[in-house]
Design a protein around this nucleic acid. Structure first.
Length: 303
DNA sequence: CGACTTTGACCTGCGC
DNA sequence: GCGCAGGTCAAAGTCG
């Protein structure tokens, strides 16, 4: 399952301006369905994280040219100024399931079905059909706050990696979103976070230390994610040193720290977001930043 | 006491 | 078929 996608990884790495080695070592995060035809019908990471589409409802585009050599800390980076992030969305669902299907309900039914069929310990099912979105963040904290509450349900040592991989699940009932967190074996300061699934609820619980205003609106209220063709490379944020994530299908759902960091909130590696500014301010700031992120042609496609 | 983490065991998929 | 690696479960422990 890993070897198969080696070529894809390499390609992504090249496009993203990342060393193929890095892309390779990070494993599944670059498991991108390049042949998914843009996956316009599949779930975008906005939906994956339940982020409001309006969050990315941006006016002015930026020069796509900047994308490849931009260098600024992603909003997801709570710590280092020279941090970087690389993101990608995976729509493996395109190959495993009909992207047009209503994913959340499908998922729940599917799960229930399988649990019914099996039972006991056999109820566990390996399901790779969920759309996935991954990003790399330079951070000292493994588990970045993103507005949702997660319960850790497993940890596994990963081959060729010093650090174990942690598995989290959204604590909200009826929400099967999962998240994997691991550190890069090449650069231990880089945290690789992979989201899988789609939140079927707003950010229900204010994470410890997160300003309540950061709670996200209902995913159901979100407009469709901005269509972006495969290989789409985001231009740089206007911030000086941000390494813009790479997206194959949609813009990434900026993780909470991503947003907070962009707002200059994150200053300590503690993951404590108590010092966040009002959400409106954050959103405004991000809106400004994101204006520079989305190429004009991408935006035009939306219209 | 509830929520969460830790951790070993178990299951599944895949390559050889 | 076997072994490996990834993913998940669930009991036990921890914490607030």
């Amino acid at each position: 399952m890993m070897m198969k996608k080696r070529e894809e990884k390499m390609e992504v790495a090249a496009v993203a301006g990342v060393s193929p080695f890095v892309a390779d070592q990070v494993g599944g995060i670059f498991d991108i369905a390049f042949d998914s035809g843009g996956d316009k019908s599949s779930q975008g990471f906005l939906e994956l994280l339940g982020l409001p589409g309006s969050f990315f409802d941006l006016p002015a585009p930026a020069s796509p040219v900047e994308a490849t050599h931009s260098a600024a800390p992603p909003e997801s980076s709570p710590v280092t100024p020279n941090s970087s992030s690389i993101s990608s969305s995976s729509t493996e669902a395109a190959t495993d399931t009909d992207p047009a299907k209503p994913q959340p309900q499908e998922d729940e039914q599917d799960k229930a079905k399988k649990i019914d069929l099996k039972g006991g310990k056999n109820k566990r099912q390996k399901r790779q059909s969920e759309p996935r979105f991954a990003f790399m963040t330079k951070s000292e904290v493994n588990h970045l706050e993103d507005g949702y509450r997660w319960r850790k349900y497993g940890q596994k040592a990963v081959k060729n990696s010093h650090s174990p991989r942690s598995y989290y699940r959204c604590t909200s009932a009826m929400c099967g979103v999962k998240k994997r967190v691991e550190r890069s074996s090449v650069d231990p300061t880089v945290v690789i976070t992979t989201y899988e699934g789609q939140h079927t609820h707003p950010s229900p619980v204010v994470p410890r230390g997160v300003h309540p205003a950061l709670s996200l609106p209902l995913a159901a209220e979100m407009p469709p994610p901005p269509p972006a063709g495969p290989g789409f490379v985001l231009p740089s944020l206007q911030a000086k040193e941000i390494h813009l994530p790479y997206f194959t299908s949609y813009l990434p759902p900026p993780p909470t720290d991503f947003r907070l960091a962009s707002a200059g909130i994150i200053t300590a590696p503690s993951g404590d977001l108590r010092h966040c500014t009002p959400a409106a301010d954050i959103l405004n700031r991000n809106r400004g930043l994101l204006q520079d992120v989305i190429p004009s042609d991408i935006r035009n496609n939306e219209e």
